[in-house]
Simulated assay, not measured.
Amino acid sequence: MSDAKPAVGDAIRAALLIGEPQAKLFAARRIARDWRLGRLFFDLTAPMPDAPARPDRPELLPPGRMPRRGKGGSERGRIALWHAIAHIEFVAIDLALDMAGRFGAEMGEAFVSDFLAVAADEAMHFALLERKLRALGSHYGALPAHDGLWQAARDTAHDVAARLAVVPMVLEARGLDVTPATIERVRHLGDRNGTLILERILDDEIRHVAVGAKWFDKVSDRRDEMPRELWQKLVKLHFGGQLKGPFNDSARRSAGLPREFYAALVS
């Protein structure tokens, strides 16, 4: 019987409260697999934590106190680059889990399926990046990291439309803009393994932005609002209004985020 199964909301909450990185990534992948195989009951009554657990390291710093990374040409610069990307992917695990756990009851089982799949992808990305850091003689937590990435989740915890507008459709979409240049820089350094990792991440992130755009369209339709106008209103309200280019217009368009959405908000 379904009520004999663990609740998916309980599993998501437990994963969010895991601070140790390896344990968190294994938990995220296990939840996605168990949900896909029907081993978890659709129950999301468990309250999501205001913030996920974090490991003792890395030290989290405000954006203004983060050391400059340089261009990644030196060994130290390469480690700093990969550490920064690993931190983004680590926080992205929690962002996807929280999306499913916080808004899944309102949005339905297909929404939960989509964002648990995103969480599993982010966990896989983090595993690849942690392995990369180990190969360079370092590890996740060895350097300080950006403290501001969870702020968008905190600011949009009350509204699924706001969360979709800001997290997949602004923050993750920004990754579509900056990753191609990073790929070229890593390729120029002769790092084939690093190039393949970043190409895989870019392909997956296009799909993640597309998931966010798809569900934002559904929410807009439910609220009887035009998606572009609603998105612009929510970005102005919860992100500060203006976006910075340059933009990877083709990747954004592939993800269902045409230039007409964001052109009016470009600083």
Rank of each mutant, 00 (worst) to 15 (best):
A145W: 01
P144G: 03
T182Q: 12
Q232F: 06
V235G: 00
I201Q: 03
A110M: 13
D221H: 13
I85V: 09
W231I: 01
V178Y: 10
P21R: 11
A32T: 02
R134F: 13
A4H: 04
L60G: 00
L143T: 06
R154S: 13
L136T: 08
G141D: 07
R102G: 00
R13V: 10
T179D: 05
E229P: 10
F41Y: 13
P6V: 12
G240V: 03
A213M: 10
P227E: 09
V186N: 00
K5M: 15
D121L: 04
E199W: 04
E199M: 09
L116M: 06
F26W: 13
P55R: 11
L17M: 11
H238W: 05
E20W: 10
G70Q: 01
P21D: 11
A100C: 01
Q151E: 14
F41A: 15
V266Y: 07
E75S: 15
T195S: 11
D177W: 08
Q22T: 14
K214I: 02
P144R: 07
L95K: 05
W231L: 02
D56Y: 09
R78A: 14
F42P: 13
N248E: 08
G175P: 00
G175Y: 08
L133E: 07
A100E: 03
M1P: 00
P58H: 11
A157E: 14
A152S: 12
H208G: 03
R33Y: 11
D10Q: 07
